[in-house]
Computed example of a mutant assay.
Amino acid sequence: MTDSTRRMLRTTVQLGLGLLAALPALVDTGTVPSTLPGLGIALVVSSAVTKLMAIQAVDQLLPSWLQRTQPASPSAVEASTR
């Protein structure tokens, strides 16, 4: 998987989680001024998820397709330890 694809997937997951958190507030309101708090919730949650995913310990817990860098193959790890 290319780095640009991985970045796009991470951004999509982060934005999706933010929108899911704000969905009740967005659906409940119908006018533009009323949706602003819901959009604020989406931005805050997306930002928080982005910050969390940037932490190395959290990054290692993510599935390989969401990690910032591609996990090293076992043969590359063995070669680097010799």
Rank of each mutant, 00 (worst) to 15 (best):
P74N: 10
R10T: 00
L52F: 04
T31E: 08
S47M: 15
Q14M: 06
L20Y: 12
V58Q: 00
G16T: 09
D28F: 13
P74V: 12
V58C: 08
L9G: 01
A25P: 04
A79V: 04
M1W: 10
L23A: 14
R82W: 05
V44F: 12
P74L: 12
E78Y: 10
L23S: 13
S46L: 10
D28G: 15
T12D: 00
V77Y: 05
G16R: 10
T35R: 13
A42S: 11
V44S: 14
S34G: 14
G18T: 07
S75H: 15
V32P: 00
G18N: 07
T81W: 06
A22D: 05
R7W: 09
V49H: 02
T29M: 04
T31W: 02
A72G: 05
L23Y: 11
I55W: 07
I55C: 11
G18D: 01
A76K: 10
G38R: 07
S4P: 05
T5L: 13
V44N: 08
D59Q: 07
P33W: 02
G40Y: 02
Q60S: 04
R82H: 15
V27S: 09
L17K: 10
V58G: 02
A22N: 06
R68Y: 07
A42W: 02
S73E: 14
P33I: 00
P74S: 08
R7V: 00
T2Y: 04
I55R: 14
L52Y: 01
G38I: 03
L62Q: 02
D28T: 14
T69G: 04
S64E: 14
L9E: 01
T69H: 09
Q60T: 05
S4H: 13
G30C: 00
V13H: 01
S47E: 13
S80E: 00
T5P: 03
I41Y: 13
T12N: 01
V77F: 07
Q70C: 15
Q70E: 15
Q14N: 02
L62F: 01
M1P: 02
I41E: 12
S73N: 10
A79K: 05
L17Q: 03
A42H: 08
P33C: 03
T12S: 08
T2I: 00
V49C: 07
R7Y: 06
L62R: 00
S73K: 15
P74Y: 07
D3R: 15
W65V: 03
L61D: 05
P37I: 04
I41S: 11
S47P: 06
E78W: 14
T35W: 15
